[in-house]
Design a protein around this nucleic acid. Structure first.
Ligand code: FES
Ligand code: FES
Lengths: 144, 144
DNA sequence: CTTATTTCGGACAAATTTATCCTAAATAAA
DNA sequence: TTTATTTAGGATAAATTTGTCCGAAATAAG
């Protein structure tokens, strides 16, 4: 469904959000540990999330990653997925036609768009805040 | 969403079904043309679909691929996807945890399973027959 | 039987995704 | 100012997916 990069990116962002809600910055190392992801690869992903403006990064001692607290409930899962995996998953044809076009639909079009749109809506309606809250109170987990 | 192999496999199977409904066998070459897929790669995929028992193959002149007509409305999209992409898409965790487990859910679990289950149900309820019929009467298209 | 045609199957190659390594740049603190 | 720490970014490597090539096996027809 999502790429590995996206999976790591989502988990990392949620973890950063939890810490940010407690006014803490977190280092790459800590994130990779908590998220169970390869450190250097995670660095790349965080770098691109920072460029997309989803997270903030700071160099030097006491540096690390954080998210402005007021933005945590503004940021939606959709934003993270879009930043990393692009919008093929939201608009692409289920059978890989160059363009999904209802006027020249592929055989699965009508059934597929329902699923795809539901996914899109779900991602747009899911805030980073609710994901982070669930993790914070121990209801959900990032590794196992 | 689906792998390239799966996209090609679905399109190829639908095309074979259309031809089979007209009592025609179809060659690899023709399939790859109609489906706009690389010939040799398509061969591999058809080979594995034949091994899975979803399509029938015959060697030699007048050979090719076909599907027993009585099975066309028995075969579901789910069967094709499962044969090619396995069942990660049906049971895997949205964030890549080793196992999707509601008792130790990842942050997106509750929202993700809804989408995943809807996808599964859609694929289980969609017969090859209806996909092939739409193509046969020109309502849908395999390439563009 | 011979030949032409078609799928099978293994080896190989290219492209993409995932992952690592190392140096540079920033920056906080001694 | 020096040092230690942390992210940035480029180069490279490993793994996976996608795609190619070619000879073997089956088989229909002359
Ligand atoms: S054309 Fe294929 S999903 Fe819309
Ligand atoms: S545990 Fe992640 S989707 Fe179920």
């Amino acid at each position: 469904m999502f790429s590995k990069a996206c999976e790591y990116g989502i988990k990392a962002t949620i973890y950063i959000a939890v810490k940010s809600m407690h006014q803490e910055r977190v280092s790459l190392k800590e994130i990779a540990e908590e998220v169970n992801s390869p450190v250097a690869f995670t660095a790349k992903i965080l770098q691109s999330l920072a460029k997309s403006g989803i997270i903030d990064s700071h160099k030097g001692p006491t540096g690390g990653f954080q998210i402005e607290e007021s933005r945590i409930d503004i940021i939606k899962l959709h934003d993270i997925v879009h930043a990393i995996d692009g919008d093929d998953i939201f608009n692409g044809c289920g059978l890989g036609l160059k363009q999904c076009d209802a006027r020249q639909p592929c055989p699965v079009h009508h059934k597929f768009v329902v699923i795809r749109d539901n996914l899109k809506i779900m991602l747009q309606n899911t805030s980073l805040y609710e994901l982070a809250s669930g993790l914070d109170i121990g209801l959900t987990h990032l590794k196992r």
